[in-house]
Design a binder for these strands. Structure first.
Lengths: 185, 185
DNA sequence: CCCTATTGCTTGTAGATGCAACCTTCACGT
DNA sequence: ACGTGAAGGTTGCATCTACAAGCAATAGGG
């Protein structure tokens, strides 16, 4: 309850610095690819989803975004032709975001830039053990931030089909399978 | 050069989630105190500085902010009476931000909320060893982000007077000692 | 002593984001 | 059926942030 210890203050201050600097820096290195870091994450989430289609709320969870924000970003990507919206046939309230062929291309094109940025700004300074520690620490903190585990803290972005991941107890949102065909393979 | 490994992707994805969620969450828990997380950091930097006074550029470095952003936030704090601007006598171009007595009070008042938020959202899930690891990891990443070590990655926010900190090779900015007296003890 | 380049900071402008309000559609209880 | 309440998304509004242009002051050369 008392004061923060000195080493705690140092760790928090550095984390704070990271929070201020990393997002901007990542986005800056992605500008040549024409996508923000968030847009890339979004498109990647779609590309890993079944048929490149996900409901807005599912996409919001996977990208750790609020729904209003996601809605606007999807609109923007729609204007660029990388994504299409389509009503969900199962649930009239729901909307699906669907990756177009151009969207898949954009993802493939941006991938080298993105991986390069991540490597040069984050991973290159760490050895294998550090990477494990980073994964553990971030998970610890995220778990406190999001006790319901509603967000993408499990294996998000790891593999599309991931067998070993029990903690998805109450699947909160699902995607809507049947929709306009021929948009993306 | 090739693909990212699976564990690397997990670590990066979680870090990304942290980047999206932590700033918002911290700010939200600070709203009762009437300050954003960034404003608190700013005021704390001032309160730790000599005579509660720092040049704008020095303050920008310590808070990892751009100068335009800092300028606006200081204006806002000035309207609230927590900070005052004053010309620097040594260099006519420079401006000093000075903490007022109200500013010191606001800092003291917000401190419990801030430490509480930091503890509950970050530190409580970590043991001492984790904290050390966090400090090391963030330093590694920040060093790659900011090779010039211009920013506040050393012991920022640790102690006002910190004897053991050699890496401040080329002190980039200094503060301006002489100025209107009697503003803050 | 003047003239140009640089530094320090501020402001105009455009784009992004969160919260709250809103609309539509589903789920239920009666 | 019908009305109430909840869920899924979108939009209005206020705020914030970055980039770039601009202004004042200092530093160096000729």
């Amino acid at each position: 309850m008392s004061e923060l210890q000195r080493d705690e203050r140092v760790a928090v201050a550095r984390l704070h610095a990271l929070l201020e600097l990393l997002p901007t820096a990542l986005d800056r290195q992605l500008t040549p690819a024409g996508l923000t870091s968030f847009e890339y994450t979004l498109i990647e989430a779609l590309s890993e989803a079944d048929a490149g289609r996900l409901r807005m709320s599912a996409l919001a969870s996977r990208t750790n975004a609020t729904l209003p924000r996601l809605s606007r970003v999807v609109s923007s990507l729609e204007r660029k032709g990388l994504v299409v919206r389509a009503a969900c046939e199962e649930d009239g309230r729901a909307t699906n975001a669907i990756l177009t062929d151009d969207g898949r291309r954009a993802h493939a094109d941006a991938r080298p830039s993105y991986e390069n940025a991540v490597r040069s700004m984050i991973l290159d300074g760490l050895d294998d053990e550090d990477v494990d520690r980073l994964a553990d620490l971030t998970l610890s903190i995220l778990t406190r931030l999001d006790p319901d585990r509603r967000l993408a803290i499990t294996a998000e972005g790891a593999d599309a089909a991931c067998a070993a991941d029990p903690p998805v107890a109450a699947a909160p949102v699902a995607d809507c399978p049947a929709d306009p065909p021929g948009v993306a393979a």
